[in-house]
Structure formats: structure tokens, C-alpha cells
């Protein structure tokens, strides 16, 4: 597992400068900077409506931006459509999993390799995914819509991995899942970063996200208001009161 130092020495695989996104007349993201290196787990936390999901969708090219740069491996990719960004190695696991409910688990995984033609490589990666997600292998021929929430999330992650990404954008993988299942998912995320992929994680569960992340950004009203290592933010009193539900009375009294 790469140490903090070896990671920070690399040039970032993903760099975002002054990113702005608007929906209609509403500026949802008001100019944010982010960096992500290979093998790094970085989380983006914040309240509902802070612009986290919008940021992730914009990075994946599903939502257009109206300002700033998105650099992937040093190249500007802000104008590329989503399918070309995926080809470069930027994969999104959308909020609410976004699996294809009418297809089987096997078919879902195969769609993940949609952009690839190297049959052998796909088969090898399929085996890797099975090793990482044994539950998925057990359910291969089941229609994905009939899986439990945790299993669906696993399928969504497995599907994204089959595009062989360098950067994985994960949108709230813990949503609506039981704590034990969430723990499993986070173990999987951890193994993914150990393989050298960069993971940018959007989470509501700030406590968990900060515990496992090397670094984190706190978003508020479309801006990044705080950033730092996971541990530093976990100890930050402002973060504790706003996102970890502690000392709320104290804050109100102050």
C-alpha cells in the first residue's frame, strides 16, 4: 500500500481548476479545485445540495460545465463527451447505482467492457472482479433488478472496473445500505486503491469517508470550504459539528 509520501510525489492523474457548473440559471458549483493521484482515495463530503454529485457527474462528462479546466493525466478533457472520457480511463459509478435492472448480472458486467475489444483482457479482468466481489459471481445469471441493494452496488462497481479505469468516481456507494454491507463496500474500495487506481468518493456518511480517505474536501453551497487529510478533518471541530452531528447544542449556543 503506497504511503502518504509516495502518493503525494506523483503528478496528479486528475486535476480540476476553477470548475463551475450551472443548471439553468442556478450555479450549482461555483469554481472548485481538486486533485487526485493514482492509488489515492479522496472523498468529497458535504450536505445535501452542496454540489457533490454535480461535481462528479461533470467530471464524468454527463453534465456540461461552464467554466474551469478538467485535466486528466495533464490533458484537458473538459470538452470530451462522456464515452470518450471513459475510454481514457475515467469511470463513474452513478448515484443510486444505475445498474441495468432488466439485464442479468453477467450482462451488466459485460456492458462495463463495452468500449473494449480485447476478449482475453476482458476475461482476465472479469476474474479479477470475481476475486474482489465473490458475491457477484454467485449471482451471475440473476436479473440485476432482483438483487439486494448491497449486491447491486457491488455489480455497479464491478461493471465500472471492467472498463479498466485509472480513476473511479464513486457516488454515494453507501446509500441505503446496512452498516455491515457498507463496511464490505469500503473494503472493496480500499483494495481498488491498492491496485493503483485513484478513487474520488462522494459520501454523505462523513465519518466513514474521512476515516478511510487519505484526503478530503468539504463542499458547501457549491464551493470547497475546507480541505485536508482525512484525519485532520475528522478532528476539525467545524467538521465535527456540521457533518458528524456532535456538539450541535454548543454550536447553537455560540
Amino acid at each position: 500500500m503506497p504511503t502518504e509520501n509516495s502518493v503525494s510525489n506523483q503528478s496528479p492523474i486528475l486535476e480540476v481548476r476553477g470548475l463551475k457548473v450551472a443548471y439553468g440559471g442556478i450555479q450549482a458549483v461555483k469554481g472548485i479545485d481538486l486533485t487526485l493521484r493514482k492509488g489515492e482515495l479522496v472523498s468529497l463530503i458535504g450536505a445535501n445540495g452542496a454540489g457533490k454529485t454535480t461535481t462528479l457527474n461533470t467530471l464524468a462528462g454527463v453534465v456540461p460545465h461552464n467554466g474551469g479546466d478538467i485535466l486528466y493525466a495533464g490533458q484537458e478533457i473538459g470538452k470530451l463527451p462522456s464515452h470518450l472520457r471513459l475510454r481514457k480511463g475515467l469511470a463513474l459509478v452513478p448515484e443510486g447505482r444505475g445498474i441495468f435492472t432488466r439485464l442479468t448480472v453477467a450482462e451488466n458486467l459485460q456492458t462495463g467492457a463495452y468500449t473494449r475489444r480485447d476478449t482475453d483482457g476482458i476475461a482476465a479482468d472479469m476474474e479479477k472482479v470475481f476475486a474482489l466481489l465473490p458475491r457477484v459471481k454467485e449471482r451471475l445469471n440473476q436479473v440485476a433488478g432482483t438483487l439486494s441493494g448491497g449486491e447491486q452496488q457491488m455489480v455497479a462497481i464491478g461493471r465500472a472496473l471492467l472498463s479498466r479505469p485509472q480513476v473511479l468516481l464513486l457516488d454515494e456507494p453507501s446509500m441505503g445500505l446496512a452498516p455491515l454491507v457498507v463496511e464490505k463496500i469500503f473494503e472493496v474500495i480500499h483494495s481498488i486503491t491498492r491496485e493503483g487506481m485513484g478513487v474520488l468518493l462522494v459520501e454523505q456518511n462523513a465519518n466513514l469517508a474521512l476515516e478511510v480517505s487519505e484526503r478530503a474536501y468539504v463542499m458547501e453551497g457549491g464551493r470547497v470550504t475546507l480541505e485536508g487529510t482525512g484525519k485532520a478533518l475528522l478532528d476539525d471541530p467545524k467538521v465535527r459539528s456540521a457533518y458528524l452531528g456532535e456538539d450541535i447544542e454548543e454550536l447553537a449556543a455560540a
Binding site: 457527474n57 464524468a60 462528462g61 454527463v62 462522456s82 464515452h83 471513459l86 475510454r87 469511470a91 463513474l92 459509478v93 452513478p94 444505475g98 445498474i99 441495468f100 435492472t101 456492458t111 462495463g112 463495452y114 468500449t115 455497479a156 461493471r159 465500472a160 472498463s163
Partner: peptide, 9 residues
């Protein structure tokens, strides 16, 4: 799921 379709390229 159109969003997911985009996400898988």
C-alpha cells in the same frame, strides 16, 4: 438507465 449507459462509455 441513460446516465449509467453514458457512464459505461
Amino acid at each position: 438507465d441513460e446516465l449509467a449507459a453514458k457512464a459505461i462509455g
